[in-house]
Structures are given as C-alpha cells and as structure tokens.
C-alpha cells in the first residue's frame, strides 16, 4: 500500500461549519465520483462521530484510526475495502478518542502517513467545529472544501470558520518566518489598535513592516477554499452561493471558489438508512449530476456561473 515517490496524490478535505449540513454525504459522493478515474482513499477524520461508512453503504469497519493512535498500526494497513471499486476507507471510532485528545507528535505522524498513502485522491472528512486539530488537518489539503446550506446558521458558522482557518494559516506562516505570536498579540491589543474586524486585523498586520506585508501576500496568495452549497431547493438558494463567495472575496480578502451546488433530495437519508450508496442508486438524479459537476469543478478550478 505504500506508494513509490512518483505518485502524487491530491488531498481534499472538508471540515468545519455546522453539523448536519451534509459534509459526509458530499465527501462520500465526491469519493465515489473520483473513484471512476483513479484510486481513492477516504479518511473519516471525524474522530468523535465517524459516519462516512453509512453513505458508502457499509457497516462500520473493525479496524479504525484508534488502532493507529493506540496500537501504532501503520496507517496504510488500516485502509479497508469499501466494496466500491477503487475506493478504500479508513474510519474513525466513535467514543474512544476525540480530536481534542490527539498530541502534536501524533498529529504530525498522522499527516506524514496520510501523504504517503497509495492513492490518486485522498479525501478527508472532518468533524464540525473549529478545534485547531480540525483546522490543521484541513490546512494540509490541496483542496480545502467547505460545505454550506442556504440557512443563516450555516452561513454564519462558515464565515466564522473561514476566519479561524485563515488566522491559523496566517499565524503558522508568520511563525515560520520568525514572527511568533504576532497575530495573537495583535488581536489581543485589538481595542488599543482600533481593530474591530477581520479585514482590519489583516491590514494592521500588513502595516507592521514591509517584510510582514510581503510574507502575507506571498504565502497566502494560493490560499483558496472551495465552497459547496448543499441542499439547494430553489434558484435563490443556488444564487446564495454566488453571494457568499463574493463576500468572502470582498470582505475577507480570501480567494473563495464557488465550486458547486447539490440539490436537496429526500432519498439521500433514505438510501443511507438502507445502506445503499446514493450515487450508485440514483446516478441520474439532479442531486447526483450536481455531484458530478462539482467533481469536475474542484479538479479544474471552475466555478458555478451566475444564473438569474
């Protein structure tokens, strides 16, 4: 299962935001769609509440990430067959271990072994919330995916998550260049510095010195998130994705791509209950076609066009 040096996998990860927006469904379907063009390994990194297997139509695998953390089994040996051609699954374990309890060294070891997995695409499904372990895992991905639904709670959570994600990256980048704690300290003194929001913080940091400005501009140029709008029911819902993207670009200065929307379908939860992967049960539904377009867009960097 260990790959040669010539094979470069694309890592995609979904995380953050609100629970129940459909992260696992979107990821499982994306994985099935990608498995038609290459070898896929899916990692259920929602350590507290792994449920990816449900969307792939299988029961919970017996070997899990807990074996990696507690029994030091190599990651590659824990990948199980999902029953879907070209798609391997590595699952989390409910109850025994949470994202909060993982130590730094364990995390680095996990990341290294993830990068070495033998696959064209490695998909990581992370839990909701803004714990830094979740954010760090998302930051190792080549494609960071954020799923939203057309509901105010979900969108507000997303903005919040995006801020956290960007800060963590900003802090990491500046620490790497010898500016440890600059972000945290600046934020701590926000009242004195007259900083009231995200943009002002970034502007203030850039004003520290020309070097800091250069670091921020250079290192974060490629920072981009892929937005997916799930459970769309109306055209208005679809356009919400365009608006959210625009706001991310204009008010956060974050390069957000509106990679796709997936239409709501009651059959999604029903097929999970019946242990049938939705994408193979209803390959021609509007929802499945949305997944197919999403797959193409994420790989190519294309976006949803505005329809009005």
């Amino acid at each position: 299962m260990v790959k040669g040096p010539e094979r470069k996998s694309i890592i995609m990860a979904v995380g953050g935001g609100k629970g129940g927006v459909g992260k696992s469904f979107v990821m499982a379907s994306l994985g099935m769609s990608l498995a038609r063009q290459g070898r896929v390994v899916m990692i259920d990194g929602d350590l507290g509440g792994a449920n990816l297997h449900n969307f792939l139509g299988i029961s919970r695998p017996t070997s899990t990430l807990t074996d990696f953390f507690e029994r030091k089994v190599p990651l590659a040996d824990l990948v199980v067959d999902s029953g879907i051609s070209n798609l391997g699954l590595l699952t989390g374990m409910v109850g025994t271990i949470g994202a909060e309890t993982i130590k730094h060294a364990q995390k680095q070891k996990l990341f290294n072994q993830i990068r070495k997995l033998d696959a064209d695409y490695i998909l990581i499904d992370l839990g909701a919330g803004t714990h830094f372990n979740t954010i760090d895992t998302l930051l190792i991905a080549d494609k960071m995916i954020i799923v939203i639904t057309p509901e105010i709670v979900s969108i507000e959570n997303m903005y919040n998550f995006l801020r956290n994600l960007y800060f963590r990256r900003l802090g990491g980048v500046l620490t790497d260049h010898g500016y440890r704690d600059l972000v945290v300290n600046t934020w701590h003194d926000r009242d004195a510095l007259g900083i009231s929001n995200f943009r002002e913080l970034v502007d203030c940091l850039k004003a520290v010195s020309p070097e800091v400005r250069l670091i921020i501009e250079e290192e974060l140029r490629d920072f981009a998130v892929n937005l997916v709008l799930n459970k769309a029911r109306t055209n208005q819902d679809i356009v919400t994705g365009n608006s959210v993207k625009s706001i991310c670009v204009k008010f956060f200065g974050v390069n957000a791509l509106y990679s796709g929307y997936v239409e709501h379908d009651d059959l999604v939860s029903r097929s999970a209950n019946h242990r049938t992967p939705y994408l193979s049960a209803y390959p021609n539904s509007r929802c499945s076609r949305g997944i197919e377009r999403l797959t193409v867009n994420i790989l190519s960097g294309q976006q949803v066009k505005v329809t009005r």
């Binding site: 057309p150 507000e156 903005y159 009231s196 608006s243 959210v244 625009s246 706001i247 008010f251 009005r308």
Partner: peptide, 29 residues
C-alpha cells in the same frame, strides 16, 4: 452588465449571505 446587476443585488439588499456576516460589514462599508 450581468455581473453588475448581480453585485448590486447582493450588496444593496439583505440576503442570507449578507445578514450573517455581522460586524464585518457596516452600512458605510
């Protein structure tokens, strides 16, 4: 022309996307 209309719509009316942004955007902004 199309993009201009869309942008105007996004930022001149309250929508799901603009309402949830909170303190990040003032009326002045």
């Amino acid at each position: 022309h199309k993009a201009w209309q869309v942008m105007k719509d996004i930022y001149s009316t309250d929508s799901l996307a603009t309402m949830s942004i909170g303190e990040e955007v003032s009326e002045e902004d």
